[in-house]
Design a protein around this nucleic acid. Structure first.
Lengths: 361, 361
DNA sequence: CAGCAGTGATTAATGGATTTATCATAGCCC
DNA sequence: GGGCTATGATAAATCCATTAATCACTGCTG
């Protein structure tokens, strides 16, 4: 009988069916156990003579045998796959570069350990929760973990480890591990900088859609706290919830607001604010200082360059990924929540507020 | 016996083992076939009375039964998973936004069809080729498909469909389907624009690492062809291969080159060129016109805003993804290669070259 | 010679869901 | 009663790789 017999796959079109272990075994006249032992060396008490081994290897190569990973996964209950969940591609905190650093930081340790990264469809949450228990994932990194009690409860009974990249909830305990940055501390840094320059009224710019994200809230809280620590405070008029295009900028500026500086909740918002300011002939930083959140390469390319709070997103993501791998290996996580400190990159978009009332020397 | 008995998983730590179909069947006192039929409705000749069905559903819910997707995948030879391969996160053509559009375009149709997207480790190519045949993926989208004959040969014998997002090879036939944009046409558009403004000497800026990508080569070829069509040509001195930081800009400019415009192979290179020009006090577009490749949101935020060739990357990615899904469903692809046209977004970084020799009125 | 160790191999169970083939039983008609 | 259909349900095979249990045989020792 010819060794190269190949069957067609009945189901889908006319693709070739893969060669199985059994076929190699039949062709070689040995048992599947022997073939498995020779090709993958895993069988415990199975023993094969060197002579046979050479023969089997040769036949397997001729037949172009490729082990079926799905069958292996089923047998071993391991898939070497980690899932990634986020709300959507665009809604991720600071913008594309932030996102890219995130993905890079998550993927690096995984790939090094020969794990794959699967992006889960951001469909119904029920589907997400179902796929956490379907055996296809060994662990999950979840950006913006939901905080409703029911979901938290379900997450607690999830059979695989979860690492959340979001601010840990203050009240509810959770079985997930949290990795985040010190958003409040970052806001404090921004205020410290602006305050030392002489700014006393700061506008916090958030965006309507994202107004409820914990990150955004934490940054605003940090701002409020930093101000109160200096004997000032954050009034309702100091918080702007503008649309994506920031078309409200013009009327805001024309109303001669008391603010001399703006703290933007994200990098992309800060970038758009610079565009709007330029469009309305408002000199930054001469007439208005701007601080963004998430300091990336793009803060260097804007005009003026952008002063921004930097969260070590790559390190955070890498830490999350490494923690997850460790948990998958059966270790208990060292910390239930890890918070990374922020830093401030001072660039060209901040200056003393003098220009508004009097000419600075 | 208690219905809620749960075994511990022996292998990894102390995670709960999942409830299996067999356990539900035992608890309900019926066969696994009946449970499978009731819960998933797939069994052909299996019939269950409505009375039993209600009972089974209730028990399954109490036991929190979750079907094991790996076992299903093995049985059905389908995983509802598509792989994505690219060289690395950062080396993708035009920069982060390009990449984000790419990912978004690929993911949208997949998610809509309840497919997952798995990012493959960019490890050894042998590993990649092996994982194409391991049964875990139903199809693959491969950015920058390798072009060496041996790999092409292996790809031809790959059991799953492949869609390549790169310029199709001119010589070698390939079994993969190609989706790309008309890079040459894009370069032609750029030249047309610059030529009409009066530019006659154009520098092509590429980067050392990426110098060999087909996209980059095609753009340069397009430039050369566009010039020759106008009775000019692309000399070796008209091609710059600078480092990532473009630190060579200063010495190049000081050598008073004949060029009045630069065509950059990517968006990010164009952005960095603007930074360098500003750092050296070179007025853009007054003294130097700049055209980038890949027109994205960030071209709006630079100063000046950036004139750029736009490739419809989202549409390309979506098309690639939809084509792959169609092939997975067993359809023959309509086209072996699809090329999308580029357009030119004229913004603020291009102007007549007058400033160099004489003052323009 | 019983007993033991070592070598070379196979058989059958396992993992969990799906499906074909088969088996009962009841009801109905001629 | 024999033959037929419809209903309700199950046993066993299948997908493919892995592995514990087992077997046959040789050679050696006490």
């Amino acid at each position: 009988m010819p060794l190269t017999t190949r069957r067609k796959c009945g189901g889908q079109g006319s693709r070739l069916m893969a060669v199985t272990l059994r076929e190699v075994a039949q062709a070689a006249g040995v048992s599947t156990a022997a073939v498995s032992k020779v090709l993958h060396g895993r069988g415990g008490s199975v023993r094969v003579s060197e002579e046979r081994a050479v023969q089997i290897r040769k036949i397997a190569e001729n037949l172009e045998y490729r082990p079926n990973a799905v069958a292996r996964n089923l047998r071993s209950s391991r898939t070497h796959t980690v899932g990634l969940i986020f709300e959507n591609f665009w809604n991720i905190s600071g913008g594309p570069l932030y996102y890219l650093h995130l993905l890079d930081g998550i993927a690096s340790p995984l790939f090094r350990s020969h794990y794959r990264l699967t992006i889960l469809p951001e469909i119904a949450q029920d589907d997400i929760l179902a796929s956490l228990g379907d055996g296809q994932l060994e662990g999950v990194i979840w950006c913006k973990l939901p905080r409703d009690p029911e979901t938290i409860d379900q997450i607690g009974r999830c059979p695989i480890p979860i690492v959340a990249m979001s601010t840990p909830p203050t009240a509810e305990p959770s079985s997930a591990v949290f990795v985040s940055c010190d958003n409040e501390g970052g806001a404090e840094l921004a205020v410290e900088h602006l305050w030392s320059l002489g700014h006393r009224k700061i506008l916090f710019l958030r965006e309507s859609e994202e107004s409820s994200t914990p990150d955004c809230v934490a940054r605003m809280d940090g701002l409020a706290r930093a101000l109160s620590r200096r004997g000032s405070r954050l009034d309702p008029e100091d918080v702007a919830t503008w649309s994506w295009g920031l078309s409200e900028f013009g009327s805001w500026w024309d109303s001669t607001p008391p603010h001399t500086a703006v703290l933007c909740w994200s990098e992309s918002a800060a970038g758009r604010l610079l565009s709007q300011a330029r469009a309305h002939g408002v000199d930054v930083p001469g007439r208005l200082s701007v601080v963004g959140f998430d300091s990336t390469q793009y803060c260097e390319t804007t005009t003026p360059t952008l002063t921004a709070v930097k969260q070590p997103i790559f390190d955070m993501a890498r830490h999350a990924s490494e923690t997850l791998l460790s948990m998958i290996r059966g270790n208990r996580p060292k910390y239930q929540a890890t918070t990374f400190p922020c830093t401030l990159d001072v660039r060209g978009s901040t200056a003393p507020p003098s220009a508004r009332e009097e000419e600075k020397s």
